[in-house]
Design a protein around this nucleic acid. Sequence first.
DNA 1: TATCTTTGACCCTAG
DNA 2: GCTAGGGTCAAAGAT
Length: 435
Amino acid sequence: MGETSVEDAAAAKPKPTIVVPPRGSMVESLFTSGLGAMGFSPGPMTLVSSFFSDQGPFSFSQLLAGAIASPKLRDYANEESWGDSSENCKTSDDAGFKRNRPMTLVVAAPESLSPPFMLPPGLTPSGLLNSPGFLSPLQSPFGMSHQQALAHVTAQAAFSQSYMQMHAELQRSPADTSTEALVSHSSPSPSETLTEQINSEPRQLESSKIESSEVSQSDKKAAYVTTGDKPASDGYNWRKYGQKHVKASECPRSYYKCTYANCPVKKKVERSHDGRVSEIVYKGEHNHLPPQSNKRKKDTSVALDREVNNVDENVQELQNDETEEGPVIVIDDENDDEPLAKRRSSDEGQSVPASSHQTITESKIVVQTRSEVDLLDDGYKWRKYGQKVVKGNPHPRRKIQAFSKHDVGFFGPPVDQHYSVVLVTDLVVSNPGPT
DNA sequence: TATCTTTGACCCTAG
DNA sequence: GCTAGGGTCAAAGAT
């Protein structure tokens, strides 16, 4: 991922904002009360894209922008007075929006789409991205890194927006605002509904995949990225064929192949030093149904179950790390034609069928925060590994790195003492599974 | 004995 | 053409 492109992305577009409101309950209650009871059963991208179906075909990026730009949502934000003001959030004229917003979470939208979009209250970015209500790794069959989760945040936001449209009269509930409330909800949340949908029937998966394919027509890359996946329950058998330390990550990376005959699917699993899974990257598409019985080897099951447990632990810890004030986060999703990573020609041939449903976009997420980068409240710890003066930017750029794939340019405070941080990651819109 | 994991070496690609 | 880095192979060891 080129640093230049990150600079371009940061410099080219003004970043409208999404705001993390103070701890509240309404949207949270949306996620906890569940949409499943409403009888929804399309795939996740169907759900998201259907909200904007009357506006023509959209890429995932556009969907995200659409969520951000929703006037309904803005109206709702005004009504609820979730946040107080910030100069960085002067992307709309809604004074009410500015009134009560605390530290802000800002997600960028295309230039023409400026109204901010409110995220569920009561969640800091880290908690938000890792809460079960947002397709937690345990619930999602393919999980996501926190940057990828950012994209899901906006997708979920679009989802909640639609929900709010359908329930305009929904009253504000005094629900528990604690993270535990999100964890222990009994009825399926919208995200759960989505996840269950993905998990359920191959036929439904087919539908989901088609939707995701439609959503990301412009994407040219294949392979899907997951984090904190639930390997033990992904239904497939894997054989480890390699492990390596990669420079981009402090975590050792393990390589797995699907053991099914002639199945081209591979996955990479990265673990942190303490053995926790930090990222799982799938590549290719299964050409078979998942094994129905417990045919997996005992060792594999044990190892993978351990991964699942680790991911659970991670969610808990990140939630515990939450603070009241969240950073300003800007999502700038760009679908460029840059190669995702070096790929061997043999891989390209086997893993990217012409009709591949797997899509991936290289996403740049700009985070604005009042805090120093080391304190960036996204639930992860960062280390500085470089600093340089960037042409056209009076502030030195500090480079920080988290687990892997997150190349970050860090700018000085541009406005109102907010720092801009560009996260570069692989945003996934995909539904792995049998065909 | 079979299967799986480990790990060093090799291959390929990008810069 | 060289080098660095990621991905894969395959022999050896472990279970």
